[in-house]
Amino acid sequence: MLNYIWFGMMFIGVVVGTYTGNIDAVTQAAIDMAKVAVNLAIGLIGIMALWLGIMKIAEESGLIRIIAKGLRPLTIRLFPDVPEDHPAIGSIVLNMAANILGLGNAATPLGLKAMEELQELNPNKETATNAMAMFLALNTSSVQLILPATVVALMGSYSSQIFITTIIATAMSTVAAVVAVKFLEKRKRFTIIDGSQS
């Protein structure tokens, strides 16, 4: 699916750009965004190092195990394939907590760590597991208790009204994400074809 969407966006971009006379802008966007991508990744190095360093301390002092254990009743239902004592559960839980609290900077390194640990359990290194899909769906639809600072800045005193509507809307999308993942993972076109598929 990502293959078609990726190609489709570029293809439509070129076709529409030719038609509307924006083709120069399309070229420029391609070049600019390639640079933006690298700058983003480079900018991430410091933040990643900071949070992964702190996480290592949390791990070695047993904090993560305590948190993961507390939330086990919930995570065992969402991630039945991940063993109870696996470190991935700890990272997943902390990433979700960071998302709920609106800590985007902390959420990304924790999330990437969770993916790495989920990958250890993956027999098929190039194919996503059910647990990965569930984790990402929860991640992108995450309930957010604290509004993004940018929204508060823009909405001013009206932020308090948005607070409630955001929580309800994001709770709906989280439920939708869980239902969609559980439903889709059993569909034929999404089943894992193991061995040497092309």
Binding site: Q119, K125, E126, T127, V181, E185
Partner: peptide, 14 residues
């Protein structure tokens, strides 16, 4: 970040 290329149902669900 982990080199997964076949994303299965993750995009559709997201």
């Amino acid at each position: 970040s982990v080199g997964v290329r076949k994303t299965r149902h993750a995009l559709a669900a997201g």
